[in-house]
């Protein structure tokens, strides 16, 4: 059986919102180390994954490895019934075909329970090589969202150039072109509001062209984290990582656009 109690429903709500438009259904893999998932979009261009470590739940119990097939649209609808500050208890009894979600209000006066039908999904796992990236950019996630949104008005793809100076996002379209350069900075704590600066750690400069449609989908994870890590090497898929507090992360891998 699985029983996992997450103190804040908002975390699960945000995770589901940030993958549901990329992936329609996927297996949630549960083990004694936590709950994870990995799935590609239909066109094989983007891979979404997340991990919530067992210590992020209190308590967490998973007796054996489970693969629970879930339709994101259904899960998203059910999670809309949970308050942001509700506690969520995820419960699965062995050999059942449903997953139970219990929402408890903070004062424990309202307890709602929903069951979601599980699917039998034959998912294809890709093994992602454990690689060192040539360049690691860390920047504000809200700034990343703004840049992707702004450049979408110009073109369908963005070129990300990372150098020691900083990171530059450029787009070109039929009506013109645009670019945003973020210079490398320290983390500036703006009156305690924790404004995240931009940092670039690199072995060599990287330049990659990526589809803005996908990047705009990835920005749905921005509410989970103040910062986003963009890990890049020339000519291979980019990894975007949004940390979920210190209990896990959401990662997106995106295949680049390559010159003919």
């Amino acid at each position: 059986m699985l029983e996992a109690r997450l103190p804040q429903a908002s975390i699960l709500k945000k995770i589901v919102e940030s993958v549901k438009d990329l992936v329609s259904q996927a297996n949630f893999d549960c083990s004694d180390s936590g709950i994870s998932f990995q799935a590609m979009d239909e066109s094989n261009i983007a891979l979404s994954s997340f991990l919530l470590r067992a210590d992020g739940f209190d308590p967490y119990r998973c007796d054996r490895n489970l693969s629970l097939g879930i339709k994101f649209a259904s899960l998203s609808k059910i999670l809309k019934c949970a308050g942001n500050d509700d506690v969520v208890i995820i419960r699965y009894m062995d050999d059942a075909d449903i997953l139970s979600l219990v929402f408890e209000s903070p004062n424990n006066e309202r307890i709602s329970e929903f069951d979601i039908k599980l699917l039998d999904i034959d998912s294809e796992y890709l093994s992602i090589p454990d690689q060192e990236f040539e360049c690691k950019v860390k920047m504000s996630s809200s700034e990343f969202s703004r840049i992707c949104r702004d450049l979408m008005t110009i073109g369908a793809s963005v070129v990300i150039d990372a150098t020691k100076e900083g990171v530059k996002f450029s787009a070109t379209g039929d009506d013109g072109s645009g670019s945003v350069l973020l210079k490398q900075s320290g983390s500036i704590d703006n009156e305690g509001r924790g404004v995240v600066g931009t940092s670039v750690e690199m072995v060599e400069p990287v330049s990659l062209e990526l589809s803005l449609k996908y990047l705009n989908n990835f920005t749905k994870a921005a509410p989970l984290s103040d910062s986003v890590a963009i890990n890049m090497s020339n000519g291979i898929p980019v990894m975007f990582q949004f940390d979920v507090g210190d209990i896990g992360y959401i990662r997106y891998f995106l295949a680049p656009q390559i010159k003919d």
């Binding site: 094989n44 890709l126 093994s127 295949a255």
Partner: peptide, 14 residues
Amino acid sequence: MSKQATLSSFFAKP
């Protein structure tokens, strides 16, 4: 012109 690559050309299917 650029062409969109797919992930399966980079990541192996076990």
